[in-house]
Amino acid sequence: MSRTLEQAHLPALARGFSLLGSGGGGRTILQELVLANAGNWPIDLYDVGDLPSSTPCIAAAYVGSTQFLHERLPGEAPFAILLDAAERWSGIRASAVCSAEGAGLNGLTPLLLAQDHMLVDADFMGRALPRLDQMSVFADRLPGLFVICDSGAGGVAVVDTGRPEDIERVVRAAVVQAGGVATAVIGGFTVGALREHAITGTYRRAQRLGNAFEMGSERSFRALAERMGAGLLGNGRVSALEPSSRGDYSYTIEITSDNGDIARIIAGSEALAFMREGRVEATVPEIIISIDSISQTILQVDELTLGRNVTVLSLPAPSWWRSTPTRIGHVSPRAFGLTDMERRP
């Protein structure tokens, strides 16, 4: 059933998508500023069952390091060149849009296209994940997909392949060519395909989480966790940062609690696991959230700096990822090289 998003809903949506980032996904502030001045409010939000199955759809996202967006602001219509290229490639002009990544900055990105596209409450991750081949449609190997990415200087790269690993490698190369961050759209699917091959309802979840987060100013993180339907993992002061010995880009954030217990967050571009006294208590695809205990700011993993007081919560993973062994294999700790981080009873 469709519903209407008002401009007044934007702060709650942004906080909700920040929470779903699991410490990643990019800061939402830039999109908030752009959308606060957009002229396309109110926006109708459609469930996947509200539109005909044959409705052509695209997914939109920024790819790469979104920090560069604060140094090199996007233009007025950052996706226009990609939409034109997608129409030339497929011969179809999509009339609906969804999110490629339902978290962080990209949770809000489809709102930029809502003036000319019907906004569908579906996305390909349900949280933030680092790799393009971890999107649900690529995990399911949905046929007929293509990706168009900005490659800089007015050019685009088109990737049309049945191998998800090609999407990751070639698009990342285009992003480097574009200067570290680029717009991208995924096409070649319909709204009907989203019913089986996408995570649905993430906008509703983000708004509910954002409303719960903003409801009160009390300092009880236990009450906050209860409102959000989250687990309270712990709190303390960041006491050490250690690079991984695995040779990858992950690292360990050590947190010392007031009673002397030692907790650790294993992180890459997102928080991947939480351990207390050597026991694994949460792992990807669960959503691990760090909040500044003093300011109650939702933190990105790169903001977990020495001496910072933090509270750590966990949200359940999108159920789509746990529905089959193949799907969970794309987002389990092993998919990130964390072979020793599987949950123990």
Rank of each mutant, 00 (worst) to 15 (best):
G126L: 05
Q67L: 03
L83P: 00
A85D: 07
F68D: 07
V97E: 05
R88E: 15
A60S: 15
W41Y: 10
Y62I: 03
W41C: 06
Y62M: 13
L129F: 15
F68M: 08
N37K: 11
L73R: 14
T109F: 14
L69C: 07
V97H: 04
Y46I: 03
D123W: 02
S90H: 09
L132I: 15
L111H: 08
L82S: 11
L83Y: 00
Y46P: 07
C57N: 01
G107W: 05
G75N: 13
S99F: 01
A114N: 11
A86W: 05
E101Q: 13
L129S: 11
Q67S: 12
R88M: 05
P130I: 01
A61V: 04
E71G: 06
A114Q: 05
I92G: 00
E101L: 14
S65G: 10
F124M: 15
R127K: 13
H117D: 07
I58R: 05
I92W: 01
F124L: 15
Y62N: 14
G39Y: 03
L111P: 06
N106Y: 12
I43W: 03
A94S: 02
A38Q: 07
M118Q: 12
A77W: 02
E87S: 06
M118A: 07
L108K: 09
A61E: 09
P42R: 03
S54C: 05
L105K: 08
L113C: 10
C57D: 00
L119V: 00
T109R: 11
E87M: 09
A61G: 13
V97S: 05
